[in-house]
Design a protein around this nucleic acid. Structure first.
Lengths: 230, 230, 230, 230
DNA sequence: GATGAATGAGGGTTCATTCAT
DNA sequence: GATGAATGAACCCTCATTCAT
């Protein structure tokens, strides 16, 4: 329970560290210097992400990151200026896939509800109980202490995501699917059960599992003014 | 060779620590021993709360807590067994006022919407941008690392709050105010914009201020199937 | 096992602390101020002796001494200037009874062997496995660090004891009981099994109990040139 | 208000710490990594031994050990898990040479007395007033607080030493050199002047120097029933 | 480039000592 | 006189960072 350890108790690695890269006979024997470097960098990022998620920024030890990544401690400093930079770059890197997905599918001709339904279920499946959710929680937990992280997240994820959501809402209002016009001002409302599900998963899943997928459906019913058949 | 230490992005004191107590002798010569002790304990809790909120658990130094509280470092240990205990007791203490408020007034004869409206506005006023919101964010940020804190919070706040909310929702369904019956299964939906507002306030207020009060209103419109006149 | 504790684990009191003095109804209701003070002083000394024996000088906490003595921590300082003074005075005090006994029974008309036999059995009975032995071990353990303690011990116990022993040896030589004349130069030889027994008791009794009484007898046989019947 | 700290009676460094390694670069550029590490480890052990001997376990500061060893504080932790482990490993290490010597030469064809004479003089010369004697005193002083140390010492030194001594005594009894048959039961008797000499050296040498060598001789006279010619 | 031993500034915790009550 | 809350100097141990190999 203590976020800061004492001694070399090791507190049991969060997850078994990735098997040490096979070493001499590497999976990409043809890889160039640069490619090897990029691989190492990526391994460090993965490892650091795991550790930061499990322990938070301050309680994470670069020693653990290094051994999880299968590199020496000094190697981290060949790729990142210091712990803070590692954290910030890692958040950026980790966010890229999320960003891609968010700017994604505006409803071609289909209904807005279908688009949101799709969005919600994707989220329920691919974020709430996955590594992506962990990243979200990490940002929520540490963002206040790392303005640059919060800034980046706001700029790259939040503002874009909300803009996309707003566009969708306006589409829905225009098409009559959505009756509440105020919603366009607060796209956050549409997303909020998603956020709550992510947080719930991190803090309370042990006590009371939450059927995120179903919750999202009820919420969409609210937005689209329908009552589920079930 | 020397290791340069840096903590998060901000090294400066979060707020100027309380000015050293001014009186040359004792500030409250009339208070009893026990009263003085209770005062000191409270001062420590206040100071620790500030520091934990500002830096997170692991990055908070008890040295800072002590000087902010105007006591010596050793004094903290007269009141709390260690840093972790301080943190946990502090969360408990800080939550008590919130708890009282939550078990609060079910709608006497008034409408459910009025009750929720009241709840939401109270929250917007007294939590989102206040110390209470900070505490919530602190729990969200550290809860995963402190199961006992998450447990306590779930037991004393979340489960009670949701039960109360569910009761209200069922009342609303019974009275016809609320049409979506699924809502009773997911009281979280009703609360989620509140959570989002609190988080937003902590991370993004700088970039885009959020009118929480107004957002809550729109959300209630959704729930009660109305569109505000305004 | 650690000689220095961590936390308030208390490491289990060495022996159950003496029952708190009955307080209001004291065993000596007529005792004067001064008598009460002397009692307290004595209680502190007893308690401190227990603790110093159990943990050594440096690892003993005055807190423990105070609670074992049933007084407040500050009270110790009314009787002793500081921890070191307490230790030194305590050794002096604890040694007084021993000293009396040592200057004791020169053989009136009886044989020297009888006198030594008596000395040895008294030692075996009243020192080796008792509190007095603990005190000896304490001095052996800490003496090097406290010259004044070693000085005092040498002056009051060792030199006197050896002088007495030498006188006895010379008596034995004169009477023909002891044949080895060199012994008078090294009375330590006569005493050495006693010292070894005390140390053995403290360190190795667990592994191999030592019949000190029997060992002393064999040693006397050596000195008096006899062979035991058994 | 301020607490004044004093340690035992001597605050000054026990001996001037080893002069900072002189060479501007590295003192032994040719030595391998592993060799350097072993050297450092050894330096730490030496330094720690000095400090533990001089101050006892609890009063020894790892800071002092580090600077005496010419390393940084953290370096100690690269070689030893903590202070207690350092202490225990150091005792083990320090004992190894003694052990070798003890299992040593039973009398080939020579007399038992010659063997014991040799043992005693070797002890007088190489232990009583040397570092080895300091180690013995350290064990006597701290053994009670460190069962594992006492155990190790008993197992590796005491029981072996006594077994060897008993064998020698039995040889002497068989050959008629030793008349007292009870001695075989208590080899401790033969060794006890040695122990006393070591302790005397540590505590009372200042007051009254002891000619250990001569004392041992007298004691052997006792055992072998002779009176020295001299 | 990669390594990991070495560094040393901290930070949590302890405890001898003081002093207002 | 007696108390015990308060103090703050130490001390053990950790870990980000450096740099010789």
């Amino acid at each position: 329970m203590p976020a800061k350890r004492r001694r070399a108790e090791k507190a049991a690695p969060v997850q078994p560290p990735a098997p040490a890269l096979p070493g001499s006979i590497s999976p990409k024997p043809a890889s160039s210097r640069a490619a090897r470097a990029a691989e190492r960098r990526q391994a460090i990022i993965e490892a650091a992400l795991d550790e930061f998620i499990a322990r938070g920024y301050a309680a994470t030890r670069l020693d653990d990151v290094a051994s999880r990544a299968g590199v020496a401690k000094g190697t981290i400093y060949l790729h990142f200026a210091d712990k803070e930079t590692l954290f910030q770059e890692l958040v950026r890197t980790a966010l890229v896939p999320l960003i891609g997905r968010l700017a994604a599918p505006p409803p071609p001709g289909g209904s807005v509800r279908a688009a949101l339904e799709n969005f919600a279920q994707t989220f329920a499946r691919e974020v709430v109980s996955t590594r992506r959710g962990d990243i979200l929680r990490l940002i929520v937990a540490e963002g206040a202490r790392f303005p640059s992280v919060a800034d980046f997240y706001y700029r790259e994820v939040v503002s874009r995501g909300l803009a996309g959501m707003r566009a969708l809402i306006e589409l829905g209002i225009a098409s009559g699917e959505i009756r509440n016009e105020g919603l366009a001002q607060f796209p956050q409302i549409v997303v909020s059960p998603v956020i709550v599900a992510v947080i719930w998963q991190g803090l309370f899943a042990r006590h009371a599992p939450l059927d995120a997928s179903e919750m999202f459906r009820v919420h969409l019913d609210l937005i689209f003014g329908e009552r589920r058949a079930a």
